[in-house]
Design a protein around this nucleic acid. Structure first.
Length: 760
RNA sequence: GGGCGCAUAGCUCAGCGGUAGAGCACCUCCCUUACAAGGAGGUGGUCGCAGGUUCGAUCCCUGCUGCGCCCACCA
């Protein structure tokens, strides 16, 4: 409900852009959705109008999502929904933030920050990704006082005016004589020191690097550790700032800088290269290269590093606690824990939670404005918890009046919003009624399970564990179940840019939710699953089969009150079912839902293909007496368990079939227990039954006869124990195979079945 | 560069010390009183490669190869 994707969607959908300087227009109405991109000029709207458009569109999207989830048969309490942008979530999020602030776990700092120039916001470490990006190595001459050149190599020549030092490794023989001296940058004529630092790599490029404020995170490290000056030239819009930085004082340098002012980074690069070429300081031609560059995962331009004031939540200080929590948490599958550990150990800074965006939970903070009109960031004004949620851009802080906003001696609201994860990380607190419903909270927190995909371990999962640690000194849940992704049929990740996304609603219509769930359940925890319509067809067939089998089993009169299981095959089937119930229950408790489904399914096909066929005649028999009663009772017992076993996977067909003979819902019926056969496993009986009936069928199939065709005799040889078992189900075998004579002969260790078909 | 996972039938995947399994696909057959949007039967594999442990390895160990993912590196 909040975050950059929503903002981008609103921008594209309505063709608008948020312009915070515009006043709110109460008469503003939502523009017609754009049919195609760029069909009309982008309209600037005020922040509040923009947020209203976001709310409008997310409300529509929520309906679509709920429809999909309901259609899919998601079993949740629909009376307890919330939105992460709603008042309740905002209140929880702001309260948790204020608590962190009071404990010193949240703080603000002015620091170089990774910045997306497209979205114009800071981004966090967890939201970075590397992408291959084309560039070129430029070999550039700096100048010593004696006129000798010092060559550096850079892929970002446009940052030349932001250069604050040259850096080489302290052990590098080539530059020993230069350390402590200064050199002059080409074109811009700025004198910069040559400094030694171990992070410089001798083998890379020329072995000596140009440190700029800021080209990359190594620059930030050097700048911080070597206390270098700041010469910022890239603005938050990704363009070269209008004014040259301090230190770029020479007339020629300023003239050159003027040529760059206002240009994009890309254009500035071309211009600087032109200037270098003209001055003779470009050594050779640029050499094309492709190297990984940091991007915001949702952005389309490389990140810049700009200095700005941001809010952070401490995480580095809690690394050990986080690792310990990772140990306590039960991971499904267990190996996914490695990603978490890897992430926690690799944290290189505190969590940056402020975003310079609009549609999100605002920071509940104002600042006094001093007599010179400057905000005093070091002494924020905070609301009481009972006032939450607040929007500092429209609510007035305690002790002030609205007409003091932005005035000297007055106040300003913090303009930033929180990162989406800063609120989503409180999912358990929001849902469990933290600080608002103590009884519910006591019953539900920590929660049992976090189900999520593995790609957001470093964001959602990590942040949730961190917040529960900081706020509740506990895990947020006991188990984490990591699902894989749905891949397209070529096993590529589905993504909008590739255009290979399949939305679920059409599938639900085409194959039925049961079929789609059947396919999805075949994706084991942690394993990616290729999109496979074939599996959905099988799921659909399974659901149909369950309906048909239920119809058949229920077509017989209800067994009499005193009916008992008297026949060996019925007893054996029920005892096998008991085993399956036990295994399935165990698998589900271990989060092995795929194994659970496999076991139920395997039994169910035996039940349909062999058992039903074998007892059919006996169940039909009007004068069958106890044997018929036994079959009819066994059918109902088995059906009751099977419908409940399948219910979590195939909620619709099971509910339908259950309704044919029960009043309540199958989904609130008790989970089946392994007591259908009242103890004792006669599994070998059904194995032998299947073997025998298969042999009879094979004989008919080989002879290209119908399955109903009569059999003159079946002669079974083998060990006495097996023959005894087979004898006990002889009546069913004869009826199902249409067998005239069934003979047994104890002989040898191996079971042999000879089938003599009747003459045609 | 570090880590994790995967490699088994044409395809999708189970199995994991004791003679290789399922479904799909393919082939053959069957309108049979739950089901033809069905059903029955069948063909098909030196379980990635090389070593080791073991009486015995698809399974355990080591190395290699290939694929995927996560992280790091970004002068």
């Amino acid at each position: 409900d909040n975050g950059l994707p929503t903002e981008r969607r609103v921008q594209n959908y309505y063709g608008v852009r948020c312009e915070p300087s515009l006043p709110y227009d109460p008469d503003f109405t939502a523009p017609e959705p754009m049919v195609k991109k760029g069909e009309r000029p982008v309209q600037n709207v005020s922040r509040r109008n923009f947020i209203e458009l976001c709310e409008l569109l997310t409300a529509e999207d929520e309906k679509a999502f709920e429809q999909t989830w309901r259609h899919l048969g998601l079993s949740v309490d629909w009376s307890r929904t919330y939105t992460t942008i709603g008042r309740h979530a905002q209140r929880v999020s702001q309260r948790a933030f204020l608590r962190l602030l009071a404990k010193g776990e949240a703080y603000q700092a002015e620091a170089p920050t990774l910045w997306d120039v497209g979205f114009r916001t800071a981004v966090a470490q967890a939201e970075l990704e590397d992408r291959e990006h084309a560039g070129a190595w430029h070999r550039i001459s700096f100048h010593r006082h004696d006129g000798q050149p010092v060559h550096i190599e850079t892929t970002r020549p446009e940052l030349l005016p932001a250069c604050v030092a040259l850096i080489a490794h302290p052990d590098d023989e080539r530059y020993q004589g230069l350390f402590g001296q200064t050199v002059t940058s080409p074109v811009f004529g700025v004198e910069v020191p040559v400094v030694a630092h171990p992070a410089a790599e001798m083998e890379r490029g020329a072995g000596i690097a140009m440190c700029c404020t800021f080209g990359d995170l190594t620059d930030v490290q050097w700048w911080r550790e070597l206390k270098l000056p700041t010469r910022t030239i890239v603005g938050r819009d990704g363009r070269i700032l209008a004014e040259p930085p301090a230190g770029l004082d020479g007339e020629q340098g300023r003239k050159a800088y003027a040529e760059l002012a206002g240009a994009t980074v890309h254009t500035a690069r071309e211009r600087v290269v032109g200037m270098l070429r003209e001055s003779g300081d470009l050594d050779g031609e640029p050499k094309k290269t492709v190297r990984p560059v940091k991007f915001y995962e949702k952005g389309d331009k490389p990140l810049e590093i700009v200095s700005s004031r941001q809010w952070f939540i401490r995480s580095i200080a809690h690394q050990d606690d986080m690792l310990r929590r990772g140990e306590e948490l039960r991971w499904h599958p267990a190996y996914m824990k490695a990603r978490y550990d890897d992430w926690v150990r690799g944290l290189n800074g505190d969590w940056l939670v402020s975003r310079q965006r609009f549609f999100g939970v605002p920071f509940p903070v104002w600042y006094p404005v001093d007599s010179a009109g400057e905000p005093a960031y070091e002494s924020p004004i905070l609301p009481g918890e009972d006032q939450l949620p607040v929007d500092p851009s429209s609510d007035t802080p305690p002790g002030y009046t609205e007409d003091q906003r932005g005035k000297p001696g007055g106040f300003v609201g913090d303009p930033d919003i929180m990162d989406t994860w800063a609120t989503s990380s409180l999912t358990p607190q929001i849902a469990c009624g933290w600080e608002e419903d103590p009884e519910l909270f006591a019953q539900t927190f920590p929660m049992d399970l976090r189900p999520q995909a593995h790609d957001i371990i470093r964001t959602w999962l990590f942040a949730t564990v961190l917040r529960a640690q900081l706020e509740n000194d506990s895990l947020p849940w006991y188990h984490a179940a990591l699902s894989g992704w749905i891949l397209d049929p070529d096993r590529k990740k589905m993504s909008k840019s590739k255009g290979n996304v399949v939305t679920p609603l059409a599938l639900l219509e085409q194959f039925s939710p049961d079929a789609v769930r059947y396919w999805a359940a075949n994706g084991r925890p942690g394993t990616d699953t290729a999109f496979d319509q074939g599996q959905m067809k099988i799921g659909r067939r399974l659901a149909t089969k369950l309906l048909n089998a239920s119809k058949f089993a229920l077509s017989f009169p209800e067994p009499a009150a005193g009916a008992e299981i008297t026949e060996a095959l019925d007893y054996a089937m029920l005892s096998a079912l008991d085993v399956v119930i036990g295994q399935t229950t165990e698998a589900l408790e271990a989060f092995e839902y795929t194994s659970a489904l496999e076991r139920i399914e395997r039994f169910f096909w035996f039940f349909c293909d062999d058992y039903l066929e074998l007892i059919k005649q006996r169940a039909y028999d009007e004068d069958g007496g106890a044997a018929t009663q036994s079959a009819r009772l066994a059918l109902r017992k088995a059906l009751s368990s099977l419908q409940r076993l399948f219910a979590p996977f195939l909620p619709y067909c099971t509910e339908e079939a259950w309704s044919w003979w029960h009043t309540g819902s199958v989904h609130t019926a008790g989970w089946p227990t392994a007591d259908n056969a009242a103890g004792g496993d006669r599994g070998e009986v059904i194995t032998l039954a299947s073997t025998a009936i298969s042999a009879i069928r094979k004989a008919k199939s080989d002879a290209k006869r119908s399955m109903r065709s009569p059999v003159e005799s079946v002669r079974i040889q083998g060990p006495a124990a097996q023959l005894e078992a087979l004898t006990s189900i002889g009546g069913d075998l004869r009826a199902a195979g249409n067998v005239e004579a069934l003979e047994f002969a104890a002989d040898g260790e191996e079971l042999r079945i000879e089938v003599q078909l009747a003459e045609v």
